[in-house]
């Protein structure tokens, strides 16, 4: 596959922050592309990282 979906685009897709047309395109692409599917899964690591930052900042406020 020549064209892939970027990490920021995948992030906005999974958070329902993109247009409905883009959503359909992402869904179809993800059905066919293992590479982008893997990128989508890797976003979980970013989520964990962000959660640790937020926890850290929250602890500071207490």
């Amino acid at each position: 596959m020549n064209f892939h979906i970027s990490i920021p685009e995948l992030d906005s897709y999974r958070n329902c922050d993109c247009s409905s047309l883009k959503r359909i395109y992402c869904r179809l692409h993800l059905l066919l592309c293992k590479k982008c599917e893997a990128k989508l899964s890797s976003l979980k690591e970013s989520d964990e990282f962000i959660t640790s930052i937020r926890k850290n900042l929250k602890n500071d406020e207490v």
């Binding site: 685009e9 992030d11 922050d17």
Partner: peptide, 16 residues
């Protein structure tokens, strides 16, 4: 909204 996510990942990569 797309730019928001581009900026988010730019900041995250820089932070790492």
């Amino acid at each position: 909204a797309n730019a928001v996510y581009v900026y988010k990942h730019e900041a995250l990569n820089k932070l790492k």
